[in-house]
Design a binder for these strands. Structure first.
Length: 496
RNA sequence: GGUCCUGUGGCCGAGUGGCUAGGCAGAGCUCUGCAAAAGCUCGUACAGCGGUUCGAAUCCGCUCGGGACCUCCA
């Protein structure tokens, strides 16, 4: 049996995963900033790490999965310049900042449910951990790696870089960072351009504000993750995940802060998912190509030709390795939609099959099935290669469908192999990849009506009254209900 | 400008130097009252130019594309 290997961004290599505490895994994933509605881009990390979470649990680990909600600090919001937007909008609309944050948090949770992601073990908020953040900053100042200017606190990157490996995660050299030409807010207060804020003094109109030893202000952009990860996972933990765009400066800063504060390297395995692009471009507000969850599921966005079911998005994402960019297009999504439908139907067919007594044993087929099924684990162990798992499932689909159509006898493989096929397909489809049925089967009343219609149509067909039988099928089709006449004479239906 | 990633058949995408990825679309066939679904068969692709090698999509170099990060960002 192979061991789980994951690609560690810190060392740029696949490494055997071995947790700090045997049997337990601590995993932190950067959560969303809830200053606006979640979008397609957000779906990737949370679905990716949902599968990682599920797989680690499958391997028998007790996982503490921490995913934060960023609800404080320096926000951006649609149609406004970079400022603390939550506050501004809140003032204008006379809303409590927390009211706005709650709204987008709820929408995020709703989206996560649609994608069938498991809830994290702990979902801490930045605003709920101001005390911890202040405490961490105090320790960093005490150690001489931060300085106070006009009520703001900055991290001394140069001093850190002299003693530690700053830039290792993002492959950056401190000298290169000094050449940045951007003008940033508060730049003039910093001793060095590379320094970053731990605490920022708040202007009087700033509503999100907290008392601190340095005056009234709000926490810097990176300290919340360090504080919450430390609190719930300890000064060193196993996995830290997030999007590749967070590698620098966010994660690099996290390492620096935590290292000074806790005197050890915070994270053992850094995992970064790649971006979703649209026409080769990263999705981002500045590109004007953001598709929100609600737009995605309803099809109400100029880029979209139709609505896409959340499961289709999930499947689409899992068809690509998490470290590759994934290019979005209507065509690609429609391909995923069809592929998922076919795969899921094969899976349902498999669940309906039953095994009686072995006969006409087909050793070659048996061996092929065993190989394809056993590779599920091998592929997952190879840096979570969900795309390959799905490819194998697609290879199994024709075999399963042939068993259903009885062109291949279920009993031509061993009872053990059949059981393996059924249990592993269920395990991987539902528990590990977290896929679900796309079509709903309606309620009991609809079931009854459909049975009635199918019976009437069957009688018409028996009488060769194809006008009636086709009328029933065509009318139902217009309503989005598809009828399929199976080889065994039965008719099945599903809602498209 | 700096750092890094990347370029696979109509589209999307796996690819660890030699052995079919897979999906969608397309073509043909089987089944079928018709349809849908399903099954079978089929494209022989790796940006270009060199190099290493018995052998490269896979390693190296150059050229040309594309992208990410360097600023909040999943």
């Amino acid at each position: 049996m192979s061991e789980l290997k994951v690609y560690n961004s810190l060392n740029r290599a696949k490494e055997v995963f071995s947790p700090l505490v045997p049997g337990h895994v601590g995993m932190y994933v950067c959560g969303p900033t809830v200053s606006g509605e979640s979008h397609l881009g957000h779906s990737r990390p949370y679905i990716t790490f949902d599968v990682v979470y599920r797989y680690l649990q499958h391997l028998g680990y007790k996982v503490r999965y921490v995913r934060n909600i960023t609800d404080a600090g320096h926000f951006e919001e649609e149609g406004r310049e970079a400022e603390d937007k939550i506050s501004k909008k809140a003032v204008l609309e006379k809303l409590e900042p927390m009211e706005l944050v709650q709204k987008y948090t709820n929408l995020f949770h709703w989206g996560m449910q649609q994608f069938n992601t498991l809830a994290p073990s702990i979902e801490p908020t930045a605003t709920g951990h101001i005390v911890e953040q202040i405490g961490m900053i105090e320790k960093i100042i005490a150690d001489g790696y931060a300085y106070v200017v006009n009520g703001s606190v900055y991290f001394d990157v140069n001093k850190y870089a002299a003693n530690y490996d700053y830039g290792k995660l993002s492959g950056r050299k401190i000298d290169d960072l000094l050449e940045t030409t951007r003008e940033l807010d508060g730049q003039e207060e910093k001793r060095d351009r590379a320094d970053f804020a731990l605490w920022k003094s708040a202007a009087p109109e700033h509503i999100m504000r907290w008392q601190s030893p340095w005056g009234v202000g709000f926490p810097g952009w990176h300290i919340e993750c360090s504080a919450m990860a430390t609190k719930y996972l300890g000064s060193q933990f196993d996995i830290h995940g997030g999007g590749m765009d967070l590698q620098f400066p966010h994660h690099e800063s996290e390492i620096a802060q935590s290292t000074i504060c806790n005197h050890e390297k915070p994270v053992r395995y850094w995992m970064h998912n790649n971006m979703i692009t649209i026409n080769g471009r990263k999705m981002g507000k500045s590109y004007g190509n953001v598709i929100t969850f609600t737009e995605l599921f309803s099809g109400s966005h100029p880029i979209l030709e139709k609505a896409f079911h959340p499961m289709v998005i999930r499947f689409f994402i899992l068809q690509t390795h998490y470290r590759s960019t994934l290019d979005f297009s209507n065509e690609a999504l429609m391909a995923s939609e069809k592929g998922l439908k076919r795969l899921w139907e094969a899976y349902e067919n498999l669940n309906k099959l039953s095994y009686t007594t072995a006969r006409n044993f087909d050793a070659e087929l048996d061996a092929r099935i065993v190989k394809l099924v056993n590779e599920f684990e091998e592929f997952m162990n190879d840096d979570i290669s969900t795309a390959k798992v799905l490819a194998n499932m697609f290879e199994l689909a024709p075999v399963i469908n042939s068993m259903k159509d009885k062109t291949i006898a279920v009993e031509s493989i061993s009872a053990e192999t059949f059981a393996l096929l059924q249990t592993q397909m269920k395990l991987y489809m539902e528990n590990i990849l977290g896929l679900q049925a796309v079509t709903d089967t309606g309620d009991d009343k609809l079931q009854g009506v459909m049975e009635l219609l199918i019976t009437i149509r069957k009688e018409a067909k028996t009488k060769k009254d194809f006008v009636t039988s086709d009328a029933i099928r065509n009318q139902l089709s217009k309503l989005g209900i598809a009828l399929k006449d199976e080889k065994d004479g039965n008719t099945t239906w599903n809602i498209e």
